[in-house]
Design a protein around this nucleic acid. Structure first.
Length: 257
DNA sequence: ATGGCAGTGCCTCACTGA
């Protein structure tokens, strides 16, 4: 069973890439972020994915944000947003597939240190922590996946001299990431891969992808009960090489279940 | 030294992203 995360930066533009990728890889469950589509697009998308054998469930809004699941297997116990946190931005969808609880998230970007959006990011991170903590009480097999907008360590940026202390790399953001780890979660990519220069996002500018100038900001944090049945976690850079790509690449974990 | 790309919608500019 393969479970993946992918920030598509507009599903309207990237729909052909997503359809091709699902058919090429046979991925079982794909969590998407940044669909940038209102929920009125839902019926068309449900049909598009049904035609290739997948279910589609969406939590979206016009222009910004938006998260979704695409799955070959039944999507059960769907929860939208962070319960108890009043937030108009659509950043979270959770569901259970084949007994695995998957929380798909688009973390706040934060713009710059000290900005209002940065304050919102820190508040949102605190609310997410509470939600994940409560979900862990009832789910031993859990995956928190998505675009975290946090590079956990200096080696997760192509040039720490540029990025250290900036948004995505600041201490409060990294502490929030470590607080998720402290809940008992494991960074599944690092569990399998210690090599440097492994990224999931590359700026559209400056030929960043060709120059291998990226950040590792898309993650799958998993419980011990998941890592025990996992055999790999890889970044699939193939879609980043296509015409009109998303600036993010999918990250895929393979489970022996 | 600067800004450089991409997507959306209030669409020929502003906003957001990372």
């Amino acid at each position: 069973m393969q479970i993946a995360t992918w920030n598509v930066n507009s599903l309207k533009v990237r729909l052909p890439h997503v359809l091709d990728w699902l058919q090429t890889t046979g991925c079982d469950v794909l969590g998407l972020q940044e669909l940038k589509l209102d929920n009125d697009a839902n019926a068309k998308l449900v049909e598009e994915f049904k035609n290739i054998g997948y279910q589609f469930v969406y939590n979206g809004q016009k222009t910004y944000n938006g998260v979704a699941f695409i799955s070959k297997h039944p999507i059960e116990d769907i929860t939208l947003d962070i319960p108890g946190y009043d937030d108009i931005q659509k950043r979270v969808i959770a569901a259970t597939v084949n007994g695995v609880r998957v929380i798909c998230t688009y973390f706040v970007n934060g713009e710059s240190i000290g900005s209002e959006k940065y304050q919102y990011k820190l508040e949102w991170l605190s609310k997410l922590h509470g939600y994940v903590s409560s979900q862990l009480q009832s789910h031993k097999r859990l995956i928190l996946l998505g675009d975290y907008n946090i590079a956990p360590e200096p080696r997760d940026t192509y040039d720490p001299a540029i990025w250290e202390g900036q948004v995505l790399c600041s201490e409060p953001e990294r502490e929030a990431f470590q607080k998720l780890i402290a809940l008992g979660l494991i960074d599944s990519f690092r569990h399998f891969n210690q090599e440097d220069r492994q990224y999931t996002w590359w700026d559209y500018r400056n030929l960043a992808f060709r120059r291998k100038q990226g950040l590792r900001i898309d993650h799958l944090l998993v419980t011990p009960d998941i890592i025990n049945v996992a055999s790999s976690c890889v970044v699939d850079t193939a879609p980043r090489k296509l015409e009109r790509p998303s600036d993010h690449a999918p990250v895929v974990i393979t489970l022996n279940i």
